[in-house]
């Protein structure tokens, strides 16, 4: 929530330097995250868990839609699309196929939930590809990515807790969550060794 809030806040018109954020952020990853949240939280209409759960779902969808809107429409001119070129159909198609084959239940909502879990695990790839192409990441972009990666990494601790104390596990969520966290590892390393020491991420040529 902090990460996505940071992203929306810094991209807002009144922010000090919105350009710094927009140029470093992959619009393709942001669209994938929006698709992820919409596909997963369709159960807003059918399944009530808690006020917190509902509020966070609405927040994730709204903030993610706002980010996509700001990037692709309002601040279209500053969006660095030349470096944002990873083909997202190569991510979406395998996730859709896998969701049709490996799921808990062959129903529309369940398949969309499963698709969202698989898609989220790889949704950061256009962003990482963009950082590798430009060879650097603004510090504010780095904070955002770290918050986004921590969100799933912290769930791994939660899943271990639930396995032992709640007698519950969801293998699809666990495997996808571990894959997702592994994809962030290289970035986590750069974040800890550079950004936390006051330097911005610059990759060797």
């Amino acid at each position: 929530a902090a990460g996505i809030g940071l992203l929306v806040g810094m991209n807002c018109p009144k922010a000090v330097k919105p350009r710094d954020v927009i140029t470093g952020i992959s619009g393709r990853s942001q669209i994938l995250f929006l698709v992820t949240y919409v596909a997963r939280y369709l159960d807003l209409l059918t399944n009530f868990v808690s006020v917190y759960n509902t509020a966070m779902k609405v927040f994730f969808i709204a903030a993610s839609a706002a980010t996509v809107y700001l990037m692709l429409f309002k601040f279209k001119a500053t969006y660095d699309h030349n470096h944002d070129t990873l083909r997202v159909e190569f991510l979406i198609a395998p996730c859709a196929l896998l969701a049709l084959v490996v799921n808990h239940d062959f129903t529309p909502l369940e398949i969309l939930w499963t698709f969202s879990i698989y898609l989220e695990s790889v949704a950061i790839l256009p962003q990482l590809f963009m950082v590798s192409k430009t060879g650097e990441a603004e510090t504010i972009t780095s904070h955002y990515l770290f918050a986004l990666g921590s969100y799933r990494a912290l769930y791994i601790l939660n899943w271990i807790y639930r396995y032992y104390f709640d007698n519950f596990f969801d293998l699809i969520a666990i495997v996808a969550g571990v894959v997702q966290t592994v994809l962030y590892c290289d970035f986590f390393y750069l974040y800890i060794t550079k950004v936390l020491k006051g330097k911005k991420i610059v990759l060797p040529a």
Binding site: N47, N53, K57, Y155, F168, F169, D170
Partner: peptide, 10 residues
């Protein structure tokens, strides 16, 4: 252990 479709996580 029960597993499956209790989607109460975000």
């Amino acid at each position: 252990h029960q597993h499956g479709t209790r989607h109460d996580e975000l």
